Amino acid sequence: MPEILYADAAVAVVVKPAGVLSQGDAEDAMPALLQKQLGGAIFPVHRLDQPTGGVMVYARTQDAAAKLSAQMQSEAFGKEYLAVLDGAPEPAEGELHDLLFFDRQKGKSYAVRRKRAGVKDARLAYRVLAQAEGLTLVRVRLFTGRTHQIRVQFSSRGWPLTGDGKYGSRNNRCTPALWSAELHFAHPVTGETLTFRSQPPEAYPWTLFSPDSL
């Protein structure tokens, strides 16, 4: 069962295991698993790709879901990730700006040069934390939430996520090395700013890096 970091009548903050669907009606998807643990309704307000694990928030009322969804358009709702990349990004700290197009038939996002129907702006900031065995650990802050955004923005520059064969990694020792490490939001009832963190699992490639760097 997913680890529950915090729960009250309005929200539930949990650690989604890698490989579990964050949305949907399947019995082994997060909403159904949380209903079994907590009872009552569960309303997804954001998503993680199935291979990605880490901290998420779910609403427990429709009103809380509406307020959290509205926050996602502002800096009140913030997400930071840890990722391991093939290669070494240059510079060691910066922002990436792209136009992304998601091809639904192929289930894949692409960085494109021109605006057209379906193309969306994408922006993130990153900072190199450590390097080991030709791989680089980075911390990523998302300013937009596009499909496969982190994966395609790094891969389009020649630094795919380790284990992400879909976007060009030749390392097949793991699933895409991406973890939702930190989440902050204003509580939809009290307005209090809440911050939650989660460490990636003790597995390759995360174990290449010292715990102090994660």
Rank of each mutant, 00 (worst) to 15 (best):
Q62P: 11
Q50H: 10
A125F: 11
N172A: 13
K16S: 06
Q131E: 12
R146Q: 09
E192P: 10
S155Y: 03
A32K: 14
F154W: 08
P17I: 01
D25P: 11
G19P: 01
L82N: 02
A32I: 08
Q35K: 15
T61V: 10
Y167H: 06
H97T: 14
V152Q: 01
E90M: 13
M56N: 04
P201W: 05
T195D: 13
G158Q: 07
F196Q: 01
Q62G: 10
L208A: 02
M30T: 01
Y58R: 01
T207H: 06
V57K: 01
A70M: 14
L194F: 13
M1V: 14
P89T: 06
Y6Q: 11
V45R: 01
T190G: 09
A122Y: 03
W206C: 03
A122G: 09
R47Y: 06
K79H: 08
R113D: 13
R116D: 15
E93C: 09
D121I: 13
G39Q: 07
S155K: 02
P2Y: 10
D25Y: 10
E182C: 10
G39N: 12
C174T: 14
D49T: 04
Q50M: 14
P211Y: 06
A9L: 12
V84H: 00
P211I: 07
V138Y: 01
S198C: 15
Q35C: 10
M72R: 14
D86G: 10
A66E: 14
K108S: 05
R173P: 12
Y110K: 07
T147P: 06
F154G: 01
T207I: 12
P160Q: 05
D28F: 08
Q153N: 12
S169F: 00
E90K: 15
K16Y: 05
E90Q: 15
L178C: 04
G94N: 03
K16M: 04
L85T: 06
S69E: 12
E80I: 09
R157A: 09
F143N: 07
E182S: 14
T190Q: 07
G24M: 05
P17K: 03
R123W: 15
D86R: 05
I150L: 05
S22I: 00
S109H: 02
R116L: 09
F77G: 05
D28A: 08
G40P: 04
T144S: 07
K79A: 03
G87A: 09
T144G: 09
A181R: 00
D63W: 11
V112P: 01
A122W: 01
W159K: 00
F154D: 04
L161I: 13
H187N: 09
D212Q: 11
L82G: 02
I150P: 00
H148C: 04
R139T: 03
H184E: 12
R47N: 05
M56W: 02
D103N: 09
Y167A: 05
K67G: 03
S155I: 03
Q23C: 10
Q35I: 10
R123H: 15
Q62V: 06
P188E: 01
S156C: 09
P89C: 08
L183E: 00
N172E: 09
R47S: 08
Y6A: 08
A125K: 11
E182I: 12
S69C: 15
V84K: 01
Q199Y: 12
C174G: 04
A26Y: 13
L68G: 02
E3Y: 11
R197K: 15
K36L: 14
V55E: 00
L137M: 08
A111S: 13
